[in-house]
Design a protein around this nucleic acid. Structure first.
Lengths: 262, 262
DNA sequence: CCGCACCTCTCATCCATTGAGAAGGTGTTC
DNA sequence: GAACACCTTCTCAATGGATGAGAGGTGCGG
């Protein structure tokens, strides 16, 4: 019995706040209601530590617990995040146009922004009988896969394009863009025609069409897109999309949201 | 020179996580982009402490900072909160019906839940030429003021009604319910007719109409409401509201969201 | 009844956290 | 342009809250 006797704390050198964040990051769309043990495993924390952190956050309403003791994101956290979110002005400005667009085109209408090197979907309206769609609100998708991503890439900073092109691109369907040459050609075409139309890149039966949304300064701050069936009528949605994007731009507050990725 | 010489730390007896939460709570809808000093003042923390906490949360993306160093809720926090939120299933189920209702009735259509002793608005669709409306997404309103609140009160736990009736009720317009007797009568009427119609209670020119949304077990889990101009045509929206509420109930997952207040 | 998994509490140790103050920056006033 | 007001961040020594192991309780399945 020597050093082992009692080792109250291994020198981790990590702040306690960082651990709490690790717990929050352990929530995934696939498992929205994990147990304390699962959270501990995923965050790499000791079970006791995870239990304590969950207890504290629950006391403040940021987390919630079911009768089976499973942990959920708390309504209070949603409230805090939604209330003052920088995405709110964008969403508020876009919502009426999303509705109009949805009424005309049907299926799925979405609003997305660039976040890191992925697309983050802020809002989505879906018809009950719409075609398949893998995106969801607060969900992410790789840039090269979706029409929204291609638009944000085409109008985004050049170094972002370099980074994305340098990496291998996952294939989802035979139509998915997977080579830098092909992507460069597509981006050039998007910039020329002002929209992206990707037929069957995410799913065989679906076509994504996306257009850029600009703020008062002309910067592209978001992408507006529709997902429609993959047939010859798909392109008919383009004019409505372009018109809607202009409407959103006009409704945007002058100092547009230009949130830099973390 | 007394005890002051060097006092590195006053015994606050509060966890560091609690301080971080205090910082988050200091964000308000009125001031969504405070400075570090403002956050410190509102949360009652030392400026240095607030600065450090903001620095850490920013590093993890939960907060964001503008060029002017002002602090905002980070997109990552919105993402985490929205991704796994317990309100999501409710919102997803209700959204199509909100849209339909909005297309027919116009003005404002909203979805709200009971949170603590207030109404919390989860979603809202607004027409561009709609009448005034004080609610907003992620915003709160006292129970006795809004039609949504009255519905949630009418079908909520009895002890909640007792607590709310025992407290003085703030008056917004001459029509606002402010006495327990009046409120009791209104609640009785709401339960009898199955909806609440409050003309001019929040604002002279607006009428709120709300109906309950039930889960599979018959519990009332939310309120669906519209805000229309305060005239004799207002009541015409009631049938559409009732029909929409039934639709939402049907779309709700069997184990309905019944989030108990913190 | 036993084994297994989960959750929470206690404990002794100690490192991350703390408030005051200083330093540096920015914008405004006179 | 100097003085001022205000904000933000860094350093510092002291310490109190956070830590991991383990015990104890609970619940489930065989």
């Amino acid at each position: 019995m020597r050093d082992t006797a009692v080792v109250p704390r291994a020198a981790t050198g990590e702040s306690s706040l960082a651990r709490a964040v690790r717990v929050l990051e352990a929530f995934t769309p696939e498992e929205p209601e994990p147990t304390v043990s699962e959270l501990a495993r995923r965050s790499g924390l000791h079970v006791a530590t995870a239990s304590r952190i969950v207890g504290q956050l629950t006391a403040h309403g940021l987390l919630g617990r079911g009768e089976d003791r499973r942990v959920r994101i708390g309504v209070r956290m949603w409230e805090l995040a939604s209330r003052a979110s920088p995405t709110r002005s964008l969403r508020d400005a876009a919502m009426p146009y999303l509705e109009d667009l949805h009424a005309v085109v049907g299926h799925h209408v979405q609003l997305a922004v660039l976040q890191g090197e992925e697309v983050l979907f802020l809002e989505r309206l879906s018809a009950r009988d719409a075609v398949v769609n893998y995106s969801r609100v607060a969900g992410r998708l790789p840039l090269h896969i979706s029409s929204s991503g291609v638009v944000l890439l085409a109008y985004g900073p050049p170094e972002l394009g370099d980074r994305v092109l340098a990496r291998p691109m996952e294939r989802r369907t035979p139509a998915t863009i997977t080579t830098p040459e092909r992507m460069r050609a597509v981006l050039e075409q998007v910039r020329r025609q002002g929209y992206a139309l990707l037929a069957g890149h995410v799913h065989e039966n679906a076509t994504g069409i996306a257009v850029p949304v600009r703020n008062g300064l002309g910067d592209v701050v978001a992408a507006l897109s529709v997902i429609v069936p993959n047939d010859e009528r798909a392109a008919a949605a383009v004019p409505a999309l372009l018109a809607a994007a202009r409407g959103v731009s006009r409704s945007l507050p002058p100092r547009g949201p230009a949130d830099q990725p973390a």
